[in-house]
Amino acid sequence: MEGALNATDSSTLGVSGARKPPATLRRSQRPRERLAGWPIADRVAWAACWVVGVGVSLVTAAIVLLMAVKGIAYLHPALLFEHPSAAVAQSQSGGFLDPIEGTLLLTAVGTAIAAPLGVAIAVWLHEYGRPAGLARATESAIEMTAGGPSVLFALFGLILFARPVLAFLSQTSAGGSVSGRSFLTAGAVSSLLALPLVVGATREALAQLPARLREASQALGKTRARTIRKVLLPSIRPGIAAGVVLGMGRIIGDTAIVIFVLGATLHLTPAGGLPGLSALRGEGTTLTAYVRYNSPAGEGLAPNKAYAAAFVLMLIVVALNFAVVRLGSGSRRKRPFARWRPARAGSAQ
């Protein structure tokens, strides 16, 4: 036996001897699925998935393409920096600087309210949830908000914020009636649209966290509050960011609230108070309202500008999504939360 072993090159048997890596490497690849062996139902489902996937992609691509072609055709830089004006002729109705500013401002106010509130509600519901009755009530309220039509919130907001007590949030006419319309009030109402999405995403993310993360922190003598703030929330930043993006999308896309509670005016109408913040108490409009108004379905009679504005709206949405997702994942180096994955059990050095 020994002899047989020795007959071959014993130096390469049983121990690694080669000093140089082989010249050719075969990379492992995902093996190709063989449909042939699948049950017929699975094959149909597989085909259906493809059809639906491709179909949705095509529709999305068509929308983007149409917006891009039409938008770019009518978009020129001046439109972005000119105030709109009330002219009948399309060539004289100015740009859409105000709607752009309005969109950004309203989204900022709405998100600034919805994001912290939503995260707080989700943490409370998921980590504490007591008293149980209140938690259940909150849950159903959030669910109803998620399904509620925005025009309902808009109407409610308009009535609520026209109360004299809340006059400081908007403007008061010479006659003493409170308008109830401003970026603050509209932002507050809009936040209702984003809130359930932030709450949902945050709860979902919290539920996904392994229990041992909580245990590890508490075993170090950290309070639950500290654990939530320093371990749990940082770990779910991507999840929160995803919820915020969805919420912002709902705020940006809504028109009812803009028309009811923001005024859907031609220009932003800053109203007294602190410099820079004066716009918050004033009325204004957004790109969605502008597009609706100028589209063939509206009264503004500037369809070309509607296309251009819609294109800009799309760019803003994409940019905001990108920014928030980036914010959520942070830099990979300093904040490796995004790279969450379970510990590899049994792995060697």
Binding site: R212, E215, A343
Partner: peptide, 27 residues
């Protein structure tokens, strides 16, 4: 929590926080 700082526990499954090595200990 004072007690748990005096009597510390290491679990069966390694459960580091999803942070840097430094932050795990600094925490």
């Amino acid at each position: 929590n004072d007690l748990r700082r005096r009597i510390s526990m290491v679990f069966q499954q390694p459960n580091p926080f999803p942070m840097s090595v430094f932050e795990n200990v600094a925490y």
